[in-house]
Design a protein around this nucleic acid. Structure first.
Length: 636
RNA sequence: GCCGCUUUAGCUCAGUUGGUAGAGCAACUCACUUGUAAUGAGUAGGUCGCCAGUUCGAAUCUGGCAAGCGGCUCCA
């Protein structure tokens, strides 16, 4: 929940950091300015958020970026007035009275009542202290805290305007949310703005196009990723890496089809209850023809599919049912467990069109999925093993500093969860115990669990600060029940196995997208689609270059020779734009001495080295999946 | 799905009050044979997102749709 701040209790609000306090005050300055321009605006709430603040307003006029200048000018006036933020404790009755006269969230009394403020008062528990804050003629219902004076908000900027539902509920009216940011001084503000500019350059959508990693084509479909040859090489390297780890941890790799019968998903509970987030079912040909003969409507077709009177298939929204069927195809003794089935499984989900974007939110994606079937006694070990794997993955990619861990629990008040509450408790306890062994901070979040079980999620931020769930480890007592899975225990009786769902990358699409941003396209050598480029000085050295390329290529390197008639400078420039880790300049000197002139995209000219020496160090770097280049002995 | 913005060459962008399009880079060709971030000259490239409408005439005005972007909601 990125908007958790809006749900903070009064108590927590009082614990705002200095920066949050400043930004919260700046939100009031923003509100003051907006009311001066549009006195009829109805204000909802204006909390600080990560990197800034916003204020939600209801206003007929559509605020556009062209209005920002005017708004900022009015804000500057308010800052210049240097009004004091004055707190006044009021009784509930007084607050209601002020709202009714339109005095709250306003510059003066007005005909219309302050509807959102009234509603907010209503949602504040009886007995809690109510306060209003005043700066100049602007009064607002607000728990505070604030900085001393509006003059403190010196370095601010109105950033954007978007829309948001009141209180985050789609049933409520849609408000205009004006985002801004504020810093203690101009220098810090400018640094922040520069960081944002820099961040845009790392955006995986931009780099993905520039580096030829992936494409999305309207004609193929929204949210469907086309992995171009270079992106596919990155993906293959990732898959090879994870496959090696799976082999080490005793997983068995399997392959399953992309579709399954509707009945399979009726059993799992996915159909028809999650229908709105699935591609429409594929009805069987014979039945479609029969229905067409009968002039049946689409509605009749759909209800038949729902009811099970018409057969059909579903593009798989997840791999679990297929893996379950593999498990169920054999008899199992407790001695066989755990069974660990892994697959790079492609799934399809009908995500809302407005949510799609780049590689991070797509409609078809490949999970590095696996399902572990184990005895209850083995559960903790298995979960810990999964966490270990996630750690290895993130560490190898240098992302071990950049993630947070979320223990996602069920919301006890919701009925969307299936299964026995006692099992839920067991599963949640097991995960809580396991997550503690990770040795990293984690947060427990209610209501974030999957419908069939709790999970541990690994969450990473993208370059513009949005949270994305990557790896996940989930405990599930429910599906084994639904599919009536069993194994024979040492007592020669049937027992129910426990399932663990886990995907250390989450999806290859999302993970690659974040990886592009993480490395700014400069993948470590082992991941780079092109690992080394040979730059002959002139075409007299083309043959030598090709011989060297062949040697490298025979060793498994992804190598190219730049045979263009460009000068070395230009060749270097192009290689660097392509983020190729190593450039080998080859001319008279090198050929005579059996050397190469090594240049690294980050370390620049490393000088001449014997060919063999370079090759050894180069392959060592790849083999060990180093993130940082081997500085093969500072320039010789 | 909802609100808002955007859509002109492969990419980044110009395009005056409506008169059927332009630059830089990339691509291609030729010349140059090069020593660590851009050698020069030339050629080609566009149903101005799509579909309607207004108009003698639409990249430009109007409507619808689609896709992209920013949020929101959702995310098994």
């Amino acid at each position: 929940m990125s908007e958790a701040s809006s749900r903070k209790t009064l108590e927590e609000r009082h614990q705002m950091s200095d920066l949050e306090r400043l930004r919260h005050s700046c939100a009031h300055v923003l509100a003051t300015a907006i009311l001066r321009i549009w006195p009829e605006a109805q204000l909802a709430g204006g909390p600080p958020v990560e990197n800034g603040f916003y204020y939600d307003i209801d206003l007929e006029h559509r605020i556009t970026p062209e209005d920002f200048e005017r708004i900022e000018a009015e804000m500057k006036k308010e800052v210049k007035s240097n009004n004091r933020f004055e707190k006044q404790i009021v009784s509930r009755e007084e607050a209601i009275e002020l709202s009714k006269s339109g005095r709250l969230g306003a510059l003066a009394e007005r005909e219309v009542e302050s509807t959102f403020k009234l509603d907010l008062i209503d949602s504040i528990p009886e007995g809690e202290e109510l306060s209003i804050f005043k700066n100049g003629e602007f009064w607002d219902l607000c728990a505070g805290p604030h900085v001393g004076r509006t003059g403190n908000c010196k370095a601010f900027k109105v950033m954007s305007v978007a829309s948001a539902f009141y209180k985050g509920d789609a049933a409520n009216p849609q408000l205009q949310r004006v985002y801004g940011t504020c810093f203690p001084n101009k220098t810090q503000l400018n640094e922040h703005l520069e960081r944002l500019e820099e961040a845009k350059k790392r955006d995986h959508r931009k780099l993905g196009r520039e580096l030829g990693l992936f494409a999305i084509d309207e004609a193929v479909g929204q949210g469907l990723i086309l992995w171009k040859p270079k992106g596919a090489l990155v993906r293959r390297s990732l898959q090879d890496f994870i496959t090696g780890e799976l082999d080490r941890q005793g997983y068995s790799q399997v392959f399953t089809p992309h579709i399954g019968k509707l009945d399979l998903y009726r059993t799992s509970g996915h159909f028809p209850y999650y229908q709105e987030s699935q591609y429409a079912p594929i009805a069987e040909r014979d039945q479609l023809e029969k229905l067409a003969d009968e002039d049946a409507s689409c509605g009749e077709l759909m209800s038949g599919l729902d009811a099970g009177t018409i057969d059909g298939f579903l593009l798989k929204p997840m791999n679990c049912p297929h893996h379950i069927k593999i498990f169920a195809s054999d008899h199992h003794s407790y001695r066989d467990l755990p069974v660990r089935l892994a697959e790079f499984g492609t799934v399809y989900r009908w995500e809302q069109s407005g949510e799609l974007g780049g590689m991070t939110r797509v409609r078809g994606f490949t999970q590095d999925d696996a399902h572990i079937f184990c005895t209850p006694d083995q559960l903790l070990d298995e979960v810990e093993g999964c966490l270990e794997l996630v750690k290895i993955v993130l560490k190898t990619l240098g992302m071990d500093q950049d993630y947070r861990v979320r223990l996602s629990l069920r919301d006890p008040d919701s009925d969307k969860y299936v299964g026995d509450p006692a099992n839920w408790d067991k599963a949640e306890d097991a995960l809580r115990q396991a997550v503690k062994t990770l040795g990293v901070n984690y947060t427990e979040e209610e209501g974030e669990a999957a419908f069939y079980g709790p999970k541990i999620d690994f969450v990473v931020k993208d370059i513009i600060g949005r949270d994305w769930q990557l790896g996940t480890v989930q405990v599930d007592y429910n599906l084994p029940e639904r599919f009536d899975l069993s194994y024979v225990g040492s007592d020669n009786e049937k027992h129910r196995p426990v399932m663990v769902h886990r995907a250390p990358f989450g999806s290859l699409e999302r993970f690659t997208g974040l990886l592009i941003e993480h490395f700014e396209g400069k993948f470590p050598t082992w991941l780079a689609p092109e690992q080394v480029r040979i730059l002959p000085i002139s075409d007299r050295f083309t043959e030598h270059a090709q011989a060297l390329a062949e040697r490298l290529s025979n060793g498994g390197a992804r190598v190219k020779v730049d045979v263009s008639s460009d000068k070395v400078g230009a060749k270097i420039r192009l290689a660097r734009l392509d983020r190729v880790p190593y450039m080998l300049v080859l001319g008279e000197r090198e050929v005579e001495n059996g050397e190469v002139s090594v240049r690294h995209r980050d370390l620049d000219d490393l000088g001449c080295r014997p060919v063999d020496e370079f090759i050894d160090a180069f392959f060592e770097e790849i083999q060990e999946r180093r993130i940082k280049p081997v500085q093969n002995g500072e320039s010789a």
